[in-house]
Amino acid sequence: MPAVRTRVPGRVPWVLVLPALAGLAFLVLPLAGLVIRAPWATLLTRLGEPQVWDALRLSLITATAATAVCLLFGVPLAWLLARITFPGRRLVRALVTVPLVLPPVVGGVALLLVLGRRGLLGRWLDAAFGVSLPFTTAGVVVAQAFVAMPFLVISVEGALRAADLRYEEAAATLGASRWTTFRRVTLPLVAPGLAAGAILCWARALGEFGATITFAGNFPGRTQTMPLAVYLALETDPQAAIVLSLVLLAVSVIVLASLRDRWVNTP
């Protein structure tokens, strides 16, 4: 049994409580304002407007595609970091987390320099396949994946480190190759961590703004995702911006609710 944490007796110190309440208000009030000022009467008709609809659909498609890309490359990367000892592993892990702290706009610029039409790889992609990523829907997916992948890798790597390695040994004694073990034992064991990482990754991709607008531009129906549409609408049609923001807020709440057992209810 863990030791029961006993409360320090005495008065509650207001020096701590007042800033705590102020901090809470600071976090909650803007969201409350969004809900209060929303044009509830015309909400349904506004949601039905094609520009809202297009942005929402594009956002859902690109965020899901970006998550798929992250799963495809991020899970093996997490496995490599968690299971294989190789020189420079610490450096690789640090590199993986760079997009986490990098300003997304910088990420967008970096993507342009590498995958742009005149970029290091982009030039070659254009010449060999006639493929050009910037300012396309695929470019949106690339920008979102770049920013969101670290969330998935860190979450899955943590789950892999926490998983009991002896299950993998048991699988080996039963004749399972490393690939079979990974597929039939390791992945199911880390499924909760994998799901949490994927949801976090998806939410991050859905809210991506800086890298997207830098690398993919702002073309309605093609690269204009929800956050971009909110930003644009704020200048021309503030009511539409509020409706779009409300939709994103709703999605965030749903994501949080689906993760509550892992992230919110910590003891």
Binding site: D164, R166, Y167, E169, A170, A171, A172, T173, L174, G175, A176, S177, V185, P188
Partner: peptide, 15 residues
Amino acid sequence: ERRPVGMVFQDYLLF
């Protein structure tokens, strides 16, 4: 994985 060996672990390690 290529040894013709079966092993029962102390806490069984059933998947």
